[in-house]
């Protein structure tokens, strides 16, 4: 049941436009069973890709959101001592207190290993964790097994999961880490690609509006002094906002006024710079 739920959640992934190059890389990566490291500007669909793979291959997706304070153990398993203590005191649960294994909870990597079917394991924003975490984790993924110290048991992956790792950092990750994965950099989509992406997201959008939006959007990306350029995600949200506004006319975009700049520019300094320069845009 839970399996079904998991797969059902990712129907949105039909909205992913996969280009040939990336598809080839994924196939090769899966064939030689390596983790795939994806880099690219935020908002170019790194995370979405894992969803798309899971959906296309009909595999459940397990997401590990990396946090800076995370320890590797958290991702593998957790020994729930408090529940055990509680059970041993009150004895009102069905669990066997002397059996520690009942109090071991699998973390995300652990779940992927013990799953009965092959899964897609997405390790999101690996760059947030420190290098020790990164290297240790790759050891585990390399050997496809880890030990649970408390019960002296080794967990071995039943099926090697398809592993997708994303990173936002411009900085390179450590060498041993890179050595163990395949790498791809998702470039920012060009205008044609963007058209097909929009087409998938908004099948009923008029060609007129698409053109105007895309022209304005790429012009906005070229503005000077912007730290975080708007990406695909921002464009989609922006168009959603434009569609929701009953007063919006395509004409206004052409005239050079850009409504809802706040959706495209998330940093206040960027927004100010954009507001000043946007009025000069004419298409």
């Amino acid at each position: 049941m839970s399996q079904e739920n998991k797969t059902a959640k990712f129907q949105g992934a039909t909205k992913y436009v996969l280009d040939d190059e990336l598809a080839k890389i994924i196939n090769v990566t899966m064939a030689i069973e390596m983790p795939l490291l994806l880099k690219g500007e935020p908002g170019t669909g790194k995370t979405m890709l894992a969803h798309a793979i899971a959906e296309a291959l009909k595999m459940p997706l397990i997401i590990l959101n990396v946090k800076s304070s995370m320890k590797l153990l958290d991702a593998l398993y957790q020994y729930d001592t408090l529940t055990r203590l509680n059970d041993s005191r009150f004895g009102d649960s069905k669990r066997e207190v002397s059996n520690i294994e009942e109090y071991i909870r699998m973390g995300k990597i652990g779940q992927a290993f013990v799953s009965d079917v092959r899964t897609v394991l997405l390790i999101d924003e690996i760059d947030k964790a420190d290098t020790d975490f990164q290297d240790d984790m790759l050891d585990v993924l390399d050997q496809m097994q880890f030990d649970i110290m408390e019960i002296d048991k080794t967990v071995t992956a039943k099926h090697r999961p398809v592993i997708v790792i994303t990173s936002n950092a411009k900085k390179d990750l450590s060498d041993p880490f890179l050595g163990r994965c395949n790498f791809h950099h998702i470039a920012f989509p060009d205008q044609d690609m963007m058209r097909s992406i929009l087409d998938v997201h908004f099948p009923n959008l008029s060609a007129d509006l698409v053109e105007a939006c895309i022209t304005t959007f790429y012009a906005l990306r070229e503005l000077r002094g912007i730290e975080k350029k708007p990406a695909t995600r921002e464009l989609i949200n922006w168009i959603r906002a434009l569609k929701a506004d009953p007063d919006f006319k395509v004409k206004t975009l052409r005239q050079g006024s850009v409504p809802y700049l706040g959706i495209l520019f998330k940093k206040s300094a960027d927004l100010n710079a954009a507001c000043q320069q946007a009025s000069r845009l004419r298409t």
């Binding site: 080839k24 090769v28 064939a31 030689i32 490291l37 890179l178 790498f183 791809h184």
Partner: peptide, 29 residues
């Protein structure tokens, strides 16, 4: 690893080789 990929028979053209070799060999954009 690239050799292994070549052995799997998944790389059938120069195009495939171009992308595959880049993903496997080159680790930074």
């Amino acid at each position: 690893r690239l050799q292994r990929a070549l052995c799997t028979g998944i790389i059938r053209s120069v195009d495939d080789f171009y992308t595959a070799a880049r993903a496997i060999l080159v680790k930074s954009e």
